[in-house]
Nucleic acid binder design. Structure first.
Lengths: 123, 123
DNA sequence: CAAGTTGTCTCAAGTAATTGACACAAAGGC
DNA sequence: GCCTTTGTGTCAATTACTTGAGACAACTTG
């Protein structure tokens, strides 16, 4: 499976396009599908492929750059950061937040959530 | 775990609040946490709990009603539909769409996707 | 060095979502 | 029957997002 990742944007999804893009690229980097130094499509190409304005794609890239996942340079294109800081704490905290949100959605209180984790830890 | 589900809306998430709400309620119904006939919070209460305008919560409810998941009646409140049509085809197609989207994001082409499913089927 | 590529920035216009307030209609509770 | 609750609808104002175009700066390629 050597094909390049296919990014998509759905107009049915009320999530703003720049955010849909940001999430997909963030996932690709987190899972290592896009490795350090790997090149991302040029703004204009990705924009035309997805039917978006350049500024919209630029916003997704900008937010990923602020997060330290990619690096953009004029004329040099955009590449995955050498060491996209994400493997450790950031992802852990994000996952913890998602877990707590989901648990609360299910109706669990703080005690139940903590004890469920303790149990999953195997005591 | 008898607590009531805790719905949340994040202002950090660019996803519009009405959509965040719609997804959470849809999930709760799909997973059966909210059973048929069960009452949802009144518009004004949920709106004030989440710091939203009544119209925003109303939009989430309206979309869920159009989808056949809940039923709203003036003065009677809003309840989970007797038979929220969702268990069968709709969920299946949604999951298939998500799988295909994820697979393409990973760089798989149509053939690879189909053969991966065949393989997962145990031949 | 010259030309092309690519990211950055600005701008005005249009669309979508949210808010807060209000009025109204239908159902439930006493 | 009356009052309260609750969903529905409208409205104007505000904010966020997107678009399309254009200009510019920095890097790459030949």
């Amino acid at each position: 499976m050597t094909g390049r990742p296919t990014l998509t944007v759905s107009t049915d999804d009320p999530t703003p396009p720049y955010e849909q893009l940001r999430r997909q690229l963030s996932d690709l980097i987190e899972y290592g599908v896009l490795g350090p130094g790997e090149r991302l499509p040029p703004l204009r190409q990705l924009a035309s492929d997805l039917g978006l304005a350049v500024g919209t794609v630029a916003r997704a890239y900008r937010e990923l750059e602020v997060a330290g996942l990619i690096i953009s340079r004029r004329g040099g294109g955009t590449r995955v950061a050498v060491n996209p800081r994400r493997a450790s704490e950031e992802v852990l905290h994000e996952r913890a937040a998602i877990f707590v949100r989901d648990a609360r959605l299910l109706g669990a209180d703080d005690e139940e959530i903590k004890s469920a984790v303790t149990r999953a830890l195997g005591r």
